[in-house]
Structures are given as C-alpha cells and as structure tokens.
C-alpha cells in the first residue's frame, strides 16, 4: 500500500520538473553541462589527450553519436548555425535525427552549407570545403583509444599515453608494412598531435587526415559510450604515423571524378552500378558537391543541376 503512495508522490514532483515545463535549453541540465564544459577546456589545453568525463545518457542510443551530441549540447547557443553530417551527407537519416533533436532543444538555425555553419557535428568525415577560423567541428567517435587494437585494457593504454610509450603501436605498423608492403589501415588512421599524444581521429578516411593538420577550426571529439573527449585546437600539428621509407598516402582516386559535379579533389563514394558492370563515383560531401554543381552550371550558363538531381 505504502509503495503506491510513494510512487505517486515521486511522480508528481518529477513531472513538475520534467516535460510539462519543458526541458532545459540543450536538454542537459546545467550541472552536466558545466562538467562537460570544464572537461572540454582541459581537452583543448592538452591537444590529443583523452579526458575522462561522466557522459550522461541522452535520448539517442550509445554508439549513435552521443559523445558528439553531449559536446554540441554543452557548447551550443541560440545564435549558432548548426550543420550535422553523417558520412559527409546532410540528409542521412541519423544526421537528420540528431539535427532534429538539437534544434528541438535549442531552437537554433540549421544549415547544410559548410561555409555558413558555426558549429558542425560530423560522423566519419571532415568537410571537403575548407573550414574557417571561428568554426567548431565536433566529431562523433566510436573508439577514442588509438592503442585499443594493440592493447585492449584501458588502464594499460592510459599508462602508455602517460609515458609517451608508443612502441607497441609502431611495432604493429611495422608488421603491417612487412606483411603487406604498406600500412593497411583505411579509416581511423592513427595520428600524432602536437608531437606528444597519439590520437584516434575517428573513422574518417585517410583523405581527411591531412586536413586535421593546422586546421583553422577548433576540432572537438566526443566518445560517449567510452566516456572520453579530446580536442585539437586550431593551427595545431597533426601528423599521421608513418615510416620514412613508407610514407603515408591518401586514397588513390586517380582517374575518377564525381559523376554529378566532376570534382576530382573531394572524397568520392563508390556506388556499384545497377547493371553490375563496374562502379559510379560521386562526392561523399553532399554540400561540397551541390556547391560545385552550382559553380559549374553558372560557368556553363545552363541549368545542369536539375537534370542531375532527378537522376539520384
């Protein structure tokens, strides 16, 4: 009997603070935001170092961008213009869903244009349009620990970072070059930040690795499930781990161009042809592609875009 009275009391007080009066700006309560904000500052001060944080649950599943989302929600203001991309694409279902949640909780303006955004949350890509000073790029990170594959234990990895002992990592890369003649890591290529910490750049393609180096924008990384966040301030050195005789290279896209905009200097997605004969290629960065098409059509003075759009 008593049990039910308690439940009722609890319920009314929770409802009072909960949905009926609206959530706090940015969904997270101010206490949680303060903690994340403090941790982000430390992350910025120690580039590439993984700062542990509490990582509260939010209404998006773990592994679906919670780390990036917690960072975004902790720093965003009503004046921000937000862009969210998944694999370079603004219209991917999960990007749309995250954007919907953030704008629902902040009322801030959303955009697909890289140049217009003040805050960009991304999964697995760095936009192909160069970022500008003042912009913030927030990465969703599945596995923040670059050493995880050589040492699964969190505590041992922590010690290796503390001592700057990356021997095991170099051994792994060396073994790869012996076995395959190259380092075969595709996405998530390990990088050295400010000459001190080896960092996981999140599963971006190699194509994006050189863009991290001395970028104009502030790069923030959030791994919600693993409860770690880290950062690369603007103009900070980010170098891929490489051997002198086996230099780092980006994806080989020679002879390929986006079939929509003709670009050769953006990362291209491969799409197998319906007829099974080879592949088509098009930009992974949908905003870059549509801007490029606009430029091309302006140059040619005809409306090429509409036709192409109809074909997607």
């Amino acid at each position: 009997m008593k049990l039910s009275t308690v439940a009722k009391g609890v319920e009314s007080s929770l409802f009072f603070n909960g949905p009926s009066t609206g959530y706090n700006f940015g969904y997270l309560n101010e206490e949680i935001k303060r903690e994340i904000r403090r941790k982000i500052l430390k992350a910025v001060a120690i580039p590439g170092y993984q700062v542990p944080y509490s990582s509260p649950e939010i209404p998006i599943a773990r592994g679906w961008g919670t780390g990036g989302l917690q960072i975004t929600l902790s720093i965003i203001g009503p004046e921000d213009r937000l862009k969210v991309i998944d694999q370079g694409c603004d219209d991917s279902v999960n990007a749309v869903n995250l954007k919907r949640f953030i704008s629902m909780m902040t009322g801030c303006e959303v955009t697909t244009e890289t140049t217009m955004a003040t805050l960009i949350q991304t999964r697995h890509r760095v936009p192909d349009t160069p970022l500008k000073q003042g912009q913030i790029l927030v990465f969703q990170v599945p596995i923040p620990e670059p050493l995880r594959e050589v040492e699964p234990k969190v505590e041992l990895c922590r010690r290796m970072h503390a001592e700057g002992d990356y021997g095991l990592m170099w051994v792994r890369l060396y073994e790869e070059t012996v076995r395959w003649g190259r380092v075969t890591v595709g996405a998530r290529y390990p990088v050295l930040v400010h000459g001190r910490y080896v960092m996981d750049p999140s599963p971006i393609p190699r194509w994006d690795i050189p863009k991290l180096n001395r970028n104009e924008a502030l790069l923030l990384f959030g791994a919600g499930r693993e409860k770690r966040l880290y950062a690369v301030p603007p103009h900070t050195s980010v170098e891929p781990l490489e051997f002198e005789d086996v230099p780092f290279t980006v994806e080989d896209q020679r002879g390929k161009a986006c079939e929509l905009c003709g670009s050769r200097d953006s990362f291209l997605d491969e799409i197998p042809r319906e007829d099974g004969l080879g592949s088509r290629w098009c930009c992974s960065d949908t905003d870059f592609c549509s801007r490029k098409r606009l430029e091309v059509s302006r140059a040619k003075g005809r409306a090429l875009i509409l036709k192409k759009d109809a074909r997607i």
């Binding site: 599943a61 773990r62 592994g63 679906w64 919670t66 998944d86 694999q87 370079g88 991917s92 999960n94 999964r123 697995h124 890509r125 599945p142 190259r182 075969t184 890591v185 595709g186 996405a187 998530r188 599963p203 971006i204 393609p205 190699r206 194509w207 499930r225 994806e251 080989d252 990362f267 291209l268 997605d269 491969e270 992974s284």
Partner: peptide
C-alpha cells in the same frame, strides 16, 4: 545495445577507405 545496433548506421566512407587499401 547502442554500440551493437549502431552498426546499422551507414559505414560506407569507412568501408570505402578500407576497400581502397585492399
């Protein structure tokens, strides 16, 4: 659960990068 289900999300950029290496 979250991490297991997140593999349903598109991973084509990651896959493309690995494909390129192969």
């Amino acid at each position: 659960m979250g991490f297991c289900l997140h593999y349903k999300l598109p991973h084509y950029v990651t896959f493309q990068a690995d494909l390129n290496q192969l």
